[in-house]
Simulated scan of single mutants.
Amino acid sequence: MRQVASVIFIFVFSNIGAAFKADVSSWVSLTYPLSEKTPVYPGVYDPLRINPEKSAATDEWPGIPAADGTYVAFRFIEMYEHTGTHVDAPSHFCKGCKDEADLTWEELTGPLVIINVREIVKNANSSSFHLQAEHLHPFVEHYGPIESGSFLFINTGWGDFYWTDGEKYAKEPACLGESAVDWVLEHAPDILGLGIDALAPECGDNKSFRLHTTMLPRGQLIVENVKSSGMDQLPPKGSYLMMFPMHLKGGTGSPVRMVAVRDSSAAPRLSLLALLSLFFNTFASYLK
C-alpha cells in the first residue's frame, strides 16, 4: 500500500503544473505598446527616444567574434520611468516610501472595478472634460459600493486619441475635477489603486496633485494611460487585474504589462477542485 501511495504522489506532483494552467483566452490587455509616438506628460517628461547610434540591425556586427553573416538586432532606448502605460510607486510622491521594485504581488494584483463614463465624455463633445462626482456616483447606486482591496479604473474613452491625436490626448484630457477627486477619496478609501486612461487622474489645474499626494503615501498605487479599448471589454465588476512592472530598484514607477482576467474566478491559482481532479485522474490512470 505504501508503494502505491508513493507512485500516486510521484504522478500527481510531476504533473501538478497542469492545475496551474491559465486560460489566456479570457485575458484582456490593458497596456499600450511603447514607441517614439507614446504621449508623455507635457512640460515634464521627454518622449521615448531610440538612439540609432547605439542601436544595430546587421549581419556584420563587430561584436560577434565570427562575423559570418549572423544577423543581430538590438535597440538603445531612453525614456522616463513614467512613460506609456505605467504604475506610480509610493516613492513617486512620498520621500522614503516604497519603490517599484519592492511592490509585492499582493499589491499588484486584485479584483478590478471599472466605472465607464465614455458616453458621458463623448456626449459632452468637449475638447477637455472635467469629470465631477455626479458622473461617478450613479455607479455605486447601480452596482453597489467599491470593495476594499480592489482596483478602481475609470474609463473615459480618452484613449481613443492615444495614437490618433497625441497632442489632444496630452493637453486636453478627460480628467477628475475637484468634486470627483473628493468622491474617489470618500467612496474608495481602501482600494489597492486607481487607474485612468489619461496621463494623470487629476485635471491640470489641480496643481496639488491631490490624489497622488493622498493615495501614494498610503501605499496605494496610481496607474496611468490604461488602454481604453481594453477596459471596454470588461464588466463593471467581476474581473481580476494582474500587473507586471519592470522591477526597477529604486524606481518611482515603471512601464507595466497589465492584463485583466474577464472572470475573476478564472484568475491563475491552484484550486482545490483542480487538485482533486488531478489526483483522481492520476489514480484512475494508475489503476489501468
Rank of each mutant, 00 (worst) to 15 (best):
E53I: 05
V87K: 08
T58W: 09
G84D: 07
I115T: 07
A101R: 03
W105R: 14
D88K: 01
E106W: 09
D68N: 14
Y80S: 13
V87P: 07
A66F: 11
A73W: 05
A89D: 06
W105Q: 14
I120Y: 04
E119Y: 00
W105M: 06
M79E: 04
K95H: 05
A56K: 04
T58Y: 07
P65Y: 13
V72W: 12
W61Q: 05
P65E: 13
P111W: 09
A67G: 03
R118G: 06
A66M: 13
L48I: 10
K95P: 00
G110V: 08
F76A: 12
G69R: 06
Y71T: 10
P111I: 02
A56W: 12
F74A: 10
G96R: 04
P90I: 03
T104W: 14
V117K: 13
G84Y: 10
S91C: 09
P90Y: 05
P52V: 14
R49I: 02
E119Q: 08
L108R: 04
A67R: 15
G84Q: 01
F74P: 02
G110P: 05
T58V: 07
E106V: 03
R75A: 15
P65L: 10
E78H: 12
E100G: 00
D88Y: 08
R118T: 15
A89P: 04
H82Q: 15
A67L: 07
P52H: 10
I114C: 04
E60P: 00
Y71N: 03
G110D: 13
R118W: 02
A67H: 04
V87H: 07
T109C: 07
P90M: 06
G84L: 11
I115G: 03
D99I: 00
E53W: 05
A101V: 03
C94V: 03
N116P: 01
E107P: 02
I64G: 01
A67N: 15
P65V: 03
T85H: 12
K98C: 00
G84A: 08
P52W: 13
L103K: 01
K95S: 10
W105L: 14
